[in-house]
Amino acid sequence: MFFDQRRIEIKTPDQVRVMRAAGLVVGRTLARLREAVRPGISTAELDTLAEQSIREQGGVPSFLGYGEPPFPASICASVNDEVVHGIPGPRVLADGDVISIDCGAIVFDDAGQGWHGDAAITVAVGTVRDEVAELMRVTEEALWRGLAAARAGGRVGDISHAVASYVHGQGDYGIVEGYTGHGIGTAMHMEPDVPNQGRPGRGPRLRQGIALAVEPMITLGAPDTDVADDDWTVVTTDGRWAAHYEHTFALTEAGVWVLTAEDGGEARLSALGVPFGGSV
Rank of each mutant, 00 (worst) to 15 (best):
S279H: 12
R28K: 14
G27C: 07
A164C: 02
R55L: 11
V125E: 04
G67L: 08
G183R: 03
E45W: 10
V123D: 00
D95F: 07
A73N: 03
D110Q: 10
H85K: 03
L251N: 08
G278V: 12
L24K: 08
L143E: 04
I159W: 04
L64V: 13
I8A: 09
L147K: 04
Y173M: 01
A77L: 11
D229S: 15
V107W: 06
G255F: 06
G153H: 10
D229K: 11
I210H: 03
I101V: 15
P223E: 05
K11C: 06
D14G: 09
A250Q: 01
I99L: 06
V194W: 05
S74K: 01
Q5S: 15
I99C: 05
E82P: 01
G58H: 03
T48C: 00
G153W: 11
G278Q: 09
E56F: 10
T252Q: 00
H182D: 05
A213K: 01
I87E: 08
T122I: 02
A21K: 14
V256P: 00
T43Y: 04
A162E: 01
G255R: 06
P216I: 04
A21I: 11
I75N: 03
L147F: 07
E35P: 08
T12M: 13
F108R: 12
V234D: 00
V132R: 13
T237R: 15
L46A: 09
I8H: 12
P204S: 08
L135A: 06
A44Q: 15
T139R: 03
P192L: 08
V84L: 12
A111L: 07
V214R: 09
E215M: 09
A162Q: 01
G183K: 02
S100A: 15
D97K: 05
L251F: 13
E266Y: 12
A111C: 05
T236L: 07
R129N: 07
H85F: 09
M188S: 12
L30H: 11
H168P: 05
G67C: 08
L64A: 14
K11W: 00
A261T: 04
T236C: 06
T248W: 06
S160N: 14
S160W: 13
Y173V: 01
H85I: 05
G185F: 02
P216F: 02
L206Y: 07
R32K: 14
W241Y: 12
Q113Y: 07
L24Y: 07
F71E: 07
I218N: 01
F108L: 06
A77K: 10
V18D: 06
L24P: 06
H85A: 11
G169W: 10
G40W: 09
R20S: 09
D109H: 09
A164Y: 02
S53M: 11
L272H: 12
A243K: 03
S100L: 01
W115H: 15
A267K: 15
A105G: 06
E51W: 14
G183V: 04
W115P: 08
L259P: 02
G198W: 07
G209D: 04
G198N: 08
A162F: 02
Q170S: 00
V79R: 11
V214I: 10
E141Y: 14
V107I: 14
E262I: 02
V132D: 11
T48P: 00
A261E: 11
G198T: 07
A120Y: 02
R268E: 15
D110Y: 07
T186A: 08
